[in-house]
Design a protein around this nucleic acid. Structure first.
Lengths: 337, 337
DNA sequence: CTGTTAGCGCCTTCAC
DNA sequence: GTGAAGGCGCTAACAG
């Protein structure tokens, strides 16, 4: 059981060459004769040699580690609905990173100084919040960062984003075609770029149509409960909107619940559409019309961008990931199958 | 922008002491006079010194990295339902790890040799499958492993688990009290220890009660669709069961859907209970009775166990995480609130 | 083309 | 109590 690691030196001895030759042969460097290269490789294989990553990192000054900020609220059971976007992004990002030889380390968002116990070469921050600690840490260490959604304090930072304003337009157009005359917007606190984009897009759409905007900000977290409370409010007050666009699927599900509990029929009495598609949106009855933000593509692109930034040490151009609107029952589409 | 790292040497010079002294002072080693220690610390703080983790890793022979196997099926949209358990586990594990000074790296389950691009000190494998590649890799490198659920090929491996058999008993008892006379079991392929435990528990319960067991294995993945198909089958055939226990929430939701589409009322015509609680189970109408496996506690314990295994280099005793049965509409409970 | 020589930044015996 | 020296395993200049 006491199996000491096989080092390059062992391989060098076995192959009868020097350390440099082993290194060059194994890393396809230098212009070694094919015979030597093969001999070294065979020796390495036979001995079961595996490079010591940490030593390599130290020598190269690069850890091979990418940080991914996480803000999964493990303590907020109610908000489990909107984790789907993040999970898909996470899974995709991790896969691509590994495929390209990088490891993804999770850095849950904490208040105060984030003490990351590893050296990292760059970081991905999803929906950076104002004064994001991880962002500051990366900046302080001079490490490249890619954000998903724009950093409002530094909008020119490399990022991957959707064209949310256009997506909102598309959804509002759909609801208008289905008969909506005064669609409202239910948004969460505008501290993320995507929420601002939605609000801006909404206002632009209203202005272009000459309809009076009605923006409601949900209080109390991004939960279904928050959506429910807000919806009970504006669905029972004066000037009840005949359509609602929400910036998050959990909010839409809250509206959905409120509408049903109030006896409002969807889509006839109330249309609902939302940002960020999810299983829950698909499973609701009627199913909720939603905009797929392509979290998989987003995660993939974020990693690619970050690796580029690290390897070319420049600021790569932002990437815009296309969205897809899925028409469902809450805006009048009839279920297929 | 060209800010060179502050090294221990810089601190040593600034504090007017030697490297050893700096190292000892910063790591609370040796018996230095408090004054010296403070002086060194102040110098370090002032210079903004941060240890180079990679160098430390190389010197200590420990990377500070824990691997967590992921089998999130990013390409299987339908199975997004049962990710909730894993996400909670992941989030909790990552938090605890960081808190204790370890980093968690995601290792998505791949076919073939998993090439992990970093050195790691140990691994957590959730629901290991037969011949799990990551398990083999860790074994080959002599790295400690903790599994969530038992490794069927090596059941004495350190692990964190629930007492699934007991949980199944509890659920079956509940359904029997509510009038069920021939509860069936809908299970996925028995290649995980938890599925086997459920099947065994089910058979034991049936034997004790003298009722005929009826086990159905869902085909085609752990999706809602698979549950639906299986349910359509046994709900329309002869000897329709009056209750079903499923080993996964997505299967239960499939049964739920099938029951509704067949006009069966829950709980009167069919009771449903399942393993693994989820938001979807809570949101269904009627809500699905489910067993909460405490993924957060499980993730936390798995990390703790693994760290223990690494630091004490022994095999820690298995941990059993308590479960909680949540009675809901599908077994007759009336909604509260 | 190959081998020798310094580090990468830190930890850790060992003398002083 | 403190400082000097060697080493962790690999990479990258530089010679030869």
């Amino acid at each position: 059981m006491t199996r000491s690691r096989v080092s390059m030196k062992d391989v060098a001895v076995a192959a009868g060459v020097s350390l440099t030759t082993v290194s060059d042969a194994l890393n396809d460097r230098g212009r070694l004769p094919e015979a030597t290269r093969r001999r070294v490789r065979e020796a390495a294989d036979q001995l079961g040699y595996a490079p010591h990553r940490t030593a390599r990192s130290l020598a190269k000054g690069r850890s091979g580690i990418l940080l991914l900020s996480v803000s999964l609220p493990e303590s907020t059971p109610g908000s489990a609905v909107d984790i789907e976007f993040f999970v898909q992004l996470l899974s995709a990002a991790s896969g691509v990173a590994l495929h390209r030889g990088w490891a993804l380390v999770l850095a849950p968002a904490t208040e105060g100084e984030p003490s990351v116990p590893v050296d990292f070469d760059g970081a991905i921050v999803v929906d950076p919040r104002p004064h994001d600690p991880l962002l500051r840490l990366a900046d302080a260490e001079g490490k490249p960062v890619v954000t998903v959604g724009r950093d409002l304090e530094q909008p020119d930072r490399p990022h991957v984003d959707n064209d949310h304003a256009a997506a909102v337009h598309q959804a509002l157009d759909l609801m208008a075609r289905a008969g909506a005359e005064r669609p409202a917007l239910l948004a969460s606190a505008p501290d993320s770029s995507y929420v601002r984009d939605c609000v801006d897009g909404y206002h632009a759409w209203c202005a272009a149509r000459g309809s009076a905007p009605r923006v409601v900000t949900a209080k109390g977290g991004l939960t279904q409960g928050a959506g429910y409370e807000a919806a009970r409010d504006f669905l029972t007050g004066p000037d009840r909107p005949d359509a609602v666009f929400t910036t998050l699927d959990s909010l839409a599900l809250g509206v959905h619940l409120a509408a049903r509990s109030l006896g409002l029929r969807m889509p006839d009495d109330l249309q609902v559409a939302t940002l960020s598609d999810s299983e829950a949106a698909r499973q609701a009855r009627p199913a909720v019309t939603a905009i797929d933000l392509d979290p998989v593509g987003t995660g993939r692109d974020a990693v690619q961008l970050l690796i580029t930034a690290i390897e070319e040490s420049g600021a790569p151009a932002p990437v815009l990931v296309p969205t897809t609107l899925h028409e469902r029952g809450t805006t009048g589409a009839t279920a297929a199958g």
